[in-house]
């Protein structure tokens, strides 16, 4: 396969970036998208150019680091996969691809396709945890949990924090991410004592990090590699409204 790539190149956080065009030749349809970038980078290195920086780690769709925009779609055209799970057979020979980093105020570009997603860590630090030590695993049914709640919590917990929801959202909102994190803990008994302050604090942290607001366009769930539903956003709205109205220690 031969492809024409338009790739965002930016030296560092402060530098001005621009789209640069490269030819990618000798690409096998069986390569993953990241392997294709590896091949292009080898070519760049042999000609003495800087290779294209992109984040990657597990290359099997669980670490959440590899996300890029391919022709304006987060993680590329294939549903329910991360960029590393995307294969070149998803594209046509001779196709032109626009490869860009996630664009959001909350995700500043560090270099080329690599963005700083530590805003997500700070949102988690605002409440995405259970404070008490849960100790070692207890007997399986010591704490009864309804099956449907367990399933729903598990579906939310599938979030890998890749940031595709933010990248795809027309408003660069992080609502799907926050709703998954708030949702998983609000459904389980261990999450109950801190349920209200978690919703309030994580939503505030999201706002402070400069992410936008949800306008119910559902672009996020369309690109989420873990197919997290926007039903969790409705759940988060419910959690936030209830906590705002009834949280005992809320400011008077």
């Amino acid at each position: 396969m031969k492809l024409k790539l338009h790739v965002w190149r930016q030296k560092n956080k402060a530098a001005q970036g621009r789209m640069v065009t490269y030819d990618a030749d000798n690409i096998s349809p069986n390569m993953s998208f990241l392997e294709m970038l590896d091949v292009v980078n080898e070519g760049l290195i042999t000609t003495g150019e800087d290779p294209i920086a992109f984040a990657h780690d597990c290359r099997e769709g669980i670490c959440g680091s590899c996300g890029v925009m391919v022709n304006g779609v987060a993680h590329g055209p294939q549903d329910a996969t991360t960029t590393c799970q995307l294969h070149m057979r998803s594209f046509q020979d001779g196709e032109e691809l626009y490869i860009e980093p996630w664009r959001a105020k909350g995700f500043p570009v560090l270099r080329d396709l690599v963005v700083d997603r530590s805003a997500f860590d700070r949102i988690i630090q605002a409440g995405g945890f259970v404070s008490v030590n849960t100790g070692s695993a207890q007997d399986a049914n010591a704490t009864p949990i309804r099956k449907s709640d367990a399933d729903e919590a598990f579906n939310a917990a599938a979030c890998i924090g890749c940031g595709a929801c933010v990248a795809a959202c027309k408003n660069a909102s992080a609502m799907l991410f926050v709703s998954a994190k708030v949702g998983q803990l609000s459904l389980l008994p261990q999450g109950q004592p801190e349920r209200q302050e978690r919703a309030l604090n994580m939503v505030s942290a999201m706002h402070e990090e400069g992410f936008g607001n949800c306008t119910n366009q559902y672009e996020c769930e369309a690109v989420c590699p873990k197919q997290i539903s926007t039903d969790y956003i409705a759940r988060l709205n419910r959690e936030f409204i209830k906590a705002t109205l009834t949280y005992p220690d809320a400011k008077k």
Binding site: H6, W8, M69, N71, G72, V73, E100, R103, A172, E219
Partner: peptide, 13 residues
């Protein structure tokens, strides 16, 4: 929240 727009903008749904 998105100071820099995408060069290639797209809409899925």
């Amino acid at each position: 929240a998105r100071p820099q727009p995408y060069a290639f903008s797209n809409t899925v749904q």
